[in-house]
Design a protein around this nucleic acid. Structure first.
Length: 365
DNA sequence: TGCGCCTCAGGTTTCTAGAG
DNA sequence: CTCTAGAAACCTGAGGCGCA
């Protein structure tokens, strides 16, 4: 398969020139290296920070008219750090990007790739004035009889890359929106789709969201009645809340139930050490584990206990961990819950909730 | 094929210089 | 002196890759 960078170059030049431009431009080769995730699986992480650092500086370069040589770029004051970072954060997936790329990482990485061929780096900065420039020498490609400025092409590449990543990513949302449309007319296919999301190979974040939605609607029909100091009785549903985004919640609690205070932790593996670590983190507070494994909960528990017994000779220590397992929920449990939720008529709500949670997870809007 | 090490990239914390 | 922006160091999970 031809890559999209070559396609873009071919749009601008004859095949011969396109090839020459590519082989003489380290910047284009760098962009090529940094955009590889397009052709990888949906799990492959994209890379935006370094690309965006280059992008905003080139954008500034073009916007201020240096492409048309109306003024000399070397006399330009440079782009202010805060402005550059602000612009980076406006770009798709860029909301949380930090200072690293502008400060050093982009240049470091470029050097790592190309130091045997060139001493130039993409980003020029003045530590005293805190201003930033794109390195113009890397933009001007001399191919013998002419000098080509690749500034617009570089930015076209970055834009195309972001487009492609967005398409990848939007497919899932489009699917969900599609589900919403057919939920009334063809509920069976919705069930099939959601069940598919529960398979062990699905993306971890998706699994965490889908299992949350199922668990939430499983408990929401159960009511608890309590009274404080014998005062009037309250009757409330068991509400499960998702705490934070998966990505921004390293090692934290995943779901919490009010008012019982049950805590849910999602895990992919059956390694007992992972469970014991979670239990340690919460100082042996009881935990309900949601496990992305296609086995019955009893089997999962058996395996954990067996493995742990080999490593823990003291039964009282072992027991202090085992007793911190409040419940284990596995894929078969979730599938059963899904079916009962649907028979209770929660299908539409569940699809809506899925969309809401995905928007939170992926920072949409 | 499974395991351990390495890289990558985002996120958090700390340091520093300059302004007031 | 304090406050702030900017810079840099530190941390961590996930994926990839090489090796047995």
């Amino acid at each position: 398969m031809k890559n999209f960078i070559i396609d873009i170059l071919d749009d601008h030049f004859t095949e011969d020139i396109a090839k020459q431009v590519y082989t003489s431009s380290y910047l284009l080769q760098y962009l090529d290296k940094k955009t590889k995730s397009v052709n990888r699986s949906s799990k492959a992480r994209g890379s935006y920070a370094n690309l965006y650092a280059i992008y905003v500086l080139i954008e500034d370069y073009i916007k201020k008219g240096f492409l048309d040589k109306t003024t000399d770029y070397s006399t330009y004051d440079g782009l202010i750090f805060t402005e550059a970072l602000r612009r980076i954060r406006e770009l798709p997936f860029g909301a949380k990007i930090q200072n690293h790329a502008l400060n050093n990482r982009c240049n470091d990485e470029f050097r790592k790739f190309f130091n045997t061929y060139t001493n130039e780096v993409p980003i020029i900065r003045n530590l005293v004035t805190k201003r930033y420039w794109i390195n113009e020498t890397l933009l001007k490609i001399d191919i013998g009889d002419q000098v080509i400025n690749i500034a617009p092409i570089c930015n076209e590449i970055v834009e195309k890359y972001v487009d492609l990543k967005m398409i990848n990513f939007n497919t899932f949302f489009d699917d969900l929106i599609g589900l919403k449309k057919i939920v009334a007319t063809n509920p069976d296919s919705v069930v099939e789709y959601v069940s598919e999301l529960l398979n062990p190979n699905s993306d971890a974040r998706i699994f965490e969201i889908v299992s949350y939605v199922i668990i939430k609607y499983h408990f929401i029909t159960q009511k608890i009645t309590y009274s404080i100091n014998d005062e009037k009785e309250h009757s409330v549903p068991l509400m499960v809340y998702k705490v934070g985004r998966t990505n921004a919640n390293d090692g934290g609690i995943d779901y919490i139930m009010k008012p019982l205070g049950r805590i849910f932790q999602v895990t992919e593996v059956l390694d007992f050490r992972k469970y014991f670590l979670d239990i340690d983190k919460l100082i042996h507070y009881p935990i309900t584990f949601v496990v992305k494994q296609d086995i019955e909960p009893t089997k999962a528990m058996e395996r954990i206990v067996n493995d742990a017994q080999i490593n823990y000779s003291d039964p009282s220590i072992l027991n202090s961990y085992i007793s911190s397992f409040e419940e284990i929920i596995t894929i078969p449990t979730l599938k059963k819950m899904l079916i009962t939720n649907i028979t209770k008529g929660f299908l539409t709500e569940m699809v809506d909730e899925l969309i809401v949670q995905c928007k939170v997870e992926y920072n949409i809007e």
